[in-house]
């Protein structure tokens, strides 16, 4: 997202996101009166968010900071905090803090 900012593209993307977010919320509540009985479909939908979030995190998290060493430190801290059931914000800021400290220490080495 550099200097030549394309508003048509960005706003189309936002509109697309809004549409495909609203549709799955709207259709069942508005039109369907029966429960999904197919066990495969129910199970598939149950696991999908976890698969998607994992795919988005790995390996992308390793390239999210100025160097892989600090990213690994951030990843480890985030996993530990998440494992201890800390809130989303605590885990996110904990990872940020760990990366910040790691980057300062790496300069000293």
């Amino acid at each position: 997202m550099e200097q030549g900012f394309n508003y048509v593209y960005v706003l189309s993307g936002v509109a697309m996101m809004a549409l495909v977010t609203y549709i799955p919320r709207m259709i069942p509540l508005t039109f369907m009166r029966r429960k999904i009985t197919n066990r495969f479909v129910k199970s598939f939908l149950y696991y999908t968010p976890y698969a998607v979030l994992t795919a988005m995190t790995l390996p992308a998290i390793l390239y999210s900071t100025s160097g892989m060493a600090s990213a690994v430190v951030g990843l480890i801290v985030a996993v530990i905090l998440a494992y201890r059931n800390h809130s989303l914000l605590t885990v996110a800021l904990g990872a940020v803090g760990a990366v910040f400290i790691a980057e300062r220490l790496l300069i000293l080495l």
Binding site: P49, Y50, L53, T54, M56, T57, A60, I61, S64, T65, S66, S70, A71, G74, L75, A78, V79, L81, A82, H86, S87, L88, L89, T90, V91, A92, L93, G94, A95, V96, G97, V99, F100, E103
Partner: peptide, 15 residues
């Protein structure tokens, strides 16, 4: 620069 990891921290906190 450290904030780049925040979004992934949140994802980990969800999964």
């Amino acid at each position: 620069s450290a904030l780049g990891i925040a979004i992934y921290g949140m994802f980990l906190a969800i999964i």
